[in-house]
Design a protein around this nucleic acid. Structure first.
Lengths: 107, 107
DNA sequence: CCGTATCCATGATGATACTG
DNA sequence: CAGTATCATCATGGATACGG
C-alpha cells in the first residue's frame, strides 16, 4: 500500500537524490548553466522523458533553477541554486567514504 | 537496456544507499547489535523479503557485519562495521542540508 | 528464527510522436 | 528546442510458502 510519507528529512533527501540521475545532473551543473539539450548530450543514456522528469523533481525541491527564454525554438537554462551548491560537497564526502570503504573491504 | 556499470564512486555509493531502507537500517543499527527479528519489528512496513535483501546488500558492501549462531531456532546478529559507522555522520549532513533547504525553499 | 524461491501486482522507464 | 502524453515493457517489491 506504499506506506509513504516519511517525515524523516534523511529519508526525504535520500529519496530525492536516489537513483542514477540526480547526482549526475548536479555534477554536470556544477560548472554553471546548462541547457536542456546540453544535459542530454552530457548524459547520452538518459531518455528525453526521464531528463525532463528528473529536472522537474530537482526544480521542485529547490535544488536547481529553471529559466525559460521566450522565442522559437524555445530555450531553457538550468542552474544550481545555493542549496544545490551546498549539497555537492556532501555528495563528494559520500563518494570519498565509498572509495575508502571499497578499498578496505577489498574486492 | 539498463546501461549499468558506473565506475563512479558517487554513483555506486548512491545506488547502495538509495531507496527507503538502507539509511533507516543503518540508523537502527546505530546503537549496537540487532537481530533480524529486531529490525523487522523496528521497521514494521518492510517485508521479510526486502529486509533480507537489503541486509545482504549492505553486508556485501562491507557496511554491516552478519554473525550467525548455531542452534535451532537460528539466531543471527547484525552490527555496523567501522565503515558503516563512518557513513552515519555523512548521512546526517545530508539530512541537515535538506532540513535547511526545505525551510528556505518554503512549502 | 532466519533465509530463499515463487508468483503476481504495481511502478518506473524507454520509445515514439505530437505541440508550442 | 523543450515539454508532454501515450503505450509497451521490464524491474521492483509484497505476499506466501517452504527449508534449514
Amino acid at each position: 500500500m506504499k506506506t509513504t510519507v516519511s517525515e524523516c528529512p534523511i529519508e526525504e533527501a535520500m529519496v530525492l537524490l536516489s537513483g542514477r540521475w540526480p547526482t549526475l545532473l548536479l555534477y554536470y551543473l556544477k560548472n554553471g548553466t546548462k541547457r536542456f539539450g546540453d544535459l542530454q548530450r552530457d548524459n547520452p543514456t538518459i531518455s528525453h522523458r526521464m531528463l525532463a522528469l528528473e529536472l522537474r523533481k530537482l526544480e521542485g525541491a529547490g535544488v536547481v533553477k529553471r529559466t525559460a527564454f521566450a522565442g522559437y525554438p524555445s530555450h531553457v537554462e538550468y542552474t544550481l541554486t545555493a542549496a544545490g551548491q551546498r549539497v555537492l560537497p556532501l555528495i563528494d564526502a559520500i563518494g570519498a567514504w565509498w572509495i575508502d570503504t571499497r578499498a578496505s573491504t577489498e574486492a
